[in-house]
Design a protein around this nucleic acid. Sequence first.
DNA 1: GCCCGGCCGTAAGCTGACCTGATGCTCGAC
DNA 2: GTCGAGCATCAGGTCAGCTTACGGCCGGGC
Lengths: 293, 293
Amino acid sequence: MLDASRLRLLHDLSRLGTIAAVARLRTYTPSAVSQQLAALEREAGAALLTRTGRTVTLTAAGRALAGHAATVLAALDEAEAALAALREGLTGPLRIGAYPSAVRTLLPAALVDLARDHPGLDLTVTELDPVAVPAALADRTLDVGLIQDYDVAPGIPDPALGSRPLLDETIHLAGAPTLAAAAGAPWILATPGTLCHTATLHLCRSAGFEPRARHHADDFATVLALVAAGQGVSVVPHLATAGAPPGVTLTPLPARRRTRIAYRRGTAGHPAVAACVTALQAAAAAYLPQDRP
Amino acid sequence: MLDASRLRLLHDLSRLGTIAAVARLRTYTPSAVSQQLAALEREAGAALLTRTGRTVTLTAAGRALAGHAATVLAALDEAEAALAALREGLTGPLRIGAYPSAVRTLLPAALVDLARDHPGLDLTVTELDPVAVPAALADRTLDVGLIQDYDVAPGIPDPALGSRPLLDETIHLAGAPTLAAAAGAPWILATPGTLCHTATLHLCRSAGFEPRARHHADDFATVLALVAAGQGVSVVPHLATAGAPPGVTLTPLPARRRTRIAYRRGTAGHPAVAACVTALQAAAAAYLPQDRP
DNA sequence: GCCCGGCCGTAAGCTGACCTGATGCTCGAC
DNA sequence: GTCGAGCATCAGGTCAGCTTACGGCCGGGC
């Protein structure tokens, strides 16, 4: 019978690409991972990976088996979720990943609720960009994470993840009355590669111009402070406008940012995940009434 | 992470009922099984079984986990089937279970075809009653098995198994011109517990009488020999009438026996299983034209 | 062109998991 | 009451699997 922990290593390899990365993720030595994958090849009776250059790539059989490994791992997730659902109280670790502005606004209320209702839970919050959430969930570095989706740059849903809607916010232009007026102004952009950066680019390009970057800041509080100091213009979602410094003009734009709470598909039935989803949805509902377009 | 081989032991236990039986099936000592299940309980964080009298029963958590274990094992089956499908030639063991009359009639032709087309296959045939086939498939004692279903006593399909139709035969009364004439005659019955025995009982009872058993024989060739010797009457399916001794009157009855070829759901995509299914269906087609009602 | 760093595989050695066999207990049947 | 079946625990030996150490290979940088 194929070994599930070896299948997990293969599944990790199919996402990460190198044995060394898998070893770092699982806190093994690369040697151990290499040996386990070699054993899996023996079990499978087929070559699963080939050395290409100084790295390895999966063969067709390797890719096929990695796909089936995802199914097996999801089934194991479901089994563990079912066990957790049968246990008396909610206990154990729950690792939540969210982007900075959510950590400051939504998370505190949700964490208080969760800690009050389920004192046995061991909550850990990690701040990270939404684009890194799917990988972190697959890595089992996170159990729950907030992902985003701009209507101007819709994302493709990950088939390994389930998700529930959380927020649907208006995007505001900060520092200028209209997008046309902001076209020539200096912009405050996020670091390239983040979702925020690409969404801003999409927004400006669909308005017919390329933003001229002057400053780079990921934190919206920092961004708004720079705008208040007259250092440039930027776009911020509704959630970030709560504590905006006075004197910053905010103009709603015809663009929306949707936030969803995501989890591995197999853990959908896990009571801790379900409790976290409801707590976050309750916290989001407290913010929603302020953002009716 | 839950261990798949331990989950398999739990799954076995849920079907077999005792740790000793699981140990016999897996050729372990009961001590090893007991230790592995104890380790699974530690992993699961819940009591999975309780001692009741001198045996054990599953708790609610144990039953739930056993159900999920079936899902995990099916996913592992599918992964192995996918690997086998990618391999060059068909190799490896294929264990076929069938009832005696099929072993004599259908199997030889199918085995010849299979051995010719796939010389790498290691074919093993086991003679057993259809009622034992689902358990043997679940035990992994068999890979493919013939199951039966009388329209007078329809069976309930096993959700863990897939199947394909193979034969649909007329049942013949042997040794008497009509069922009414056979009511008072001595009967040759199969051993109680076999599907054949219960089907005969159903047939007689729906005709309004209880068959009086005189001889017990499971093999239809033996049954027909006894009928030819004037020792009693019996019912035999079409497949068994091929080499009937002369002088035995055979009367078609308004009852049919359906034979299906069954396999574990996860192995549906296994090329060896698929090849066996097609070979048996081809062999069955050679018998079918003789049995148009 | 050459060196260096990262990646992968193999060999050796040690720790720990796991199976066996023995022992003791409980329960049910005769 | 005795016996047998079933299960758990304990001691002991074996083997899988990890780490460490080492060598080969490729690609980028000076």
